[in-house]
Every structure is written in structure tokens, then in C-alpha cells.
């Protein structure tokens, strides 16, 4: 078993308890998509592409009063150590649903009746915390597509490792740690839009964990903001 934290409180990948992995985000990386983003979150490498609003197929899914949001989270067969079957797993279907429900509070689709906005997420390489990193990219891709949004959605996990509450669980910590709590947050509206937990926390640890996760989301938000600003408002053309 890996030692998850040393006596100085340094984690197995060299981070402090309140430190995020390195994050880089690029906006507008795909030509065909209406909006897109690429994120590297630690060793995670994830692409998000948004199409729409556009015609709904199959037709019966269309809503006369509002646009709808669809979301597909998918992992490439080569994204993990053992080859993953390319067919969508039950885990991927559940994650697609929670990601959709994390983005729904942000998007405003009432002006697009009978249409759909499709969010496609491809995890090219996975290393723990993919749903949060995927959400970070998807939220930016939606803004890039010009879909009206109440706020950005920023996501980051917190958890419990070696009896301590830590920010941004990596793959080893997810496998061998004590708890993993992915959180998505709208930083300006101060609303939690995704929250899950695997693992055992006392009530006081729970409070600390939510707060730690929210703090992480705020750090991620600054990077999302910079990525959007870089694409739209830098003077290089």
C-alpha cells in the first residue's frame, strides 16, 4: 500500500493538503463544435465539445417550452491502465446524469424551445477526479458556445486521506483514501450543483470537507475565467 501522506503532511504526489493539482485550460480547441474546451487537471486529459442549440433528434424528446440539455461523459478505451470497453458503462451513464444536473442550474434554455444543447465529454486520460475536471471543461465549452448562463460551474473534489481533510483527491487517494466528495459550485451565486460522497465522515469532518471543496471550486474558477479571458480578450490576433 502506498503511503498517502508523510509525517510533514505532504501527500503522495508532493502536494499540501489544501493544494490543487496543476491545471491548464484551453478554450475553443475544436473547429466543428459550437463551443469547446480542453483541460489538463493533474494527469487527467479531457475534451469537451458543445453543439447547439439545434434541432432535437429524436423529435419526441423536444420540449415546447424550453430547450433541453443532454450530456454524454465517455472514457476512451486507452484512458485507464486496463483497456476499458468502449461501450458506455453504468458508471459513465450515472456520471453523465450528475454532470447534466450540475450544469442545468447554470444554463438558461427558455429562449430555445424545441431545441437541444448537446455536451460531449471525452476523457482521454483518467487520473482521479474526472467528473469534476470534465465539468470544469464542459462549463467553459458552454460559455464558448454562447449558451446563456447564470454563472460558470466550477468543480473540484475534497476528501479524507490519512485521517485528514484534503483538497482535490488524485487517483491513489481515491483508491486507498477514506472518503471522496466531488463538488460543483456556481461561485457567484454560491450554489452547490453537484455533490456526491463515497466514504465515511463524521459530521464535523463533513462540514470541513464541503467547505474545502467549495474553496477548491473557487480556485478552479479563477483558472476557468482566465482561460475564457485569454481566448476572447487578448490582443493577439
Amino acid at each position: 500500500m502506498t503511503q498517502l501522506m508523510n509525517e510533514n503532511g505532504i501527500r503522495c504526489d508532493g502536494r499540501r493538503v489544501d493544494q490543487l493539482r496543476n491545471i491548464s485550460i484551453k478554450v475553443g480547441v475544436l473547429k466543428n463544435a459550437d463551443g469547446s474546451a480542453y483541460i489538463e487537471f493533474g494527469k487527467n486529459k479531457i475534451l469537451a465539445g458543445v453543439f447547439g442549440p439545434r434541432d432535437v433528434h429524436p423529435k419526441h424528446m423536444a420540449n415546447q417550452d424550453s430547450g433541453i440539455l443532454r450530456c454524454r461523459y465517455h472514457m476512451s478505451p486507452f484512458s485507464v491502465t486496463e483497456r476499458k470497453n468502449p461501450a458506455p458503462s453504468r458508471r459513465e451513464i450515472e456520471i453523465s446524469k450528475v454532470i447534466k444536473e450540475a450544469l442545468l442550474p447554470a444554463v438558461i434554455l427558455k429562449d430555445f424551445p424545441r431545441t437541444v444543447v448537446d455536451v460531449f465529454i471525452e476523457v482521454l486520460q483518467a487520473d482521479g477526479g474526472t467528473r469534476c475536471a470534465a465539468l470544469d471543461a464542459a462549463s467553459i465549452a458552454l460559455a464558448d458556445a454562447g449558451i446563456p448562463m447564470r454563472d460558470l460551474v466550477s468543480a473540484c473534489a475534497a476528501g479524507k486521506v490519512a485521517d485528514q481533510i484534503v483538497l482535490d483527491i488524485n487517483n491513489e487517494e481515491d483508491q486507498e483514501g477514506q472518503a471522496d466528495m466531488p463538488i460543483a459550485y456556481m461561485p457567484n451565486l454560491e450554489k452547490i450543483t453537484l455533490m456526491q460522497l463515497d466514504g465515511i465522515l463524521s459530521p464535523s469532518e463533513y462540514k470541513k470537507c464541503v467547505q474545502t471543496g467549495i474553496n477548491g471550486c473557487k480556485l478552479v474558477y479563477e483558472m476557468q475565467r482566465k482561460a475564457l479571458m485569454d481566448k476572447y480578450f487578448t490582443n493577439e490576433t
Binding site: A143, P148, D151, N188, L228
Partner: peptide, 8 residues
């Protein structure tokens, strides 16, 4: 001012 979604 330059803004993104969510900016007050």
C-alpha cells in the same frame, strides 16, 4: 467592461 457569464 469585458465580462463572462456570472460576472456582476
Amino acid at each position: 467592461r469585458y465580462v463572462i457569464p456570472g460576472d456582476v
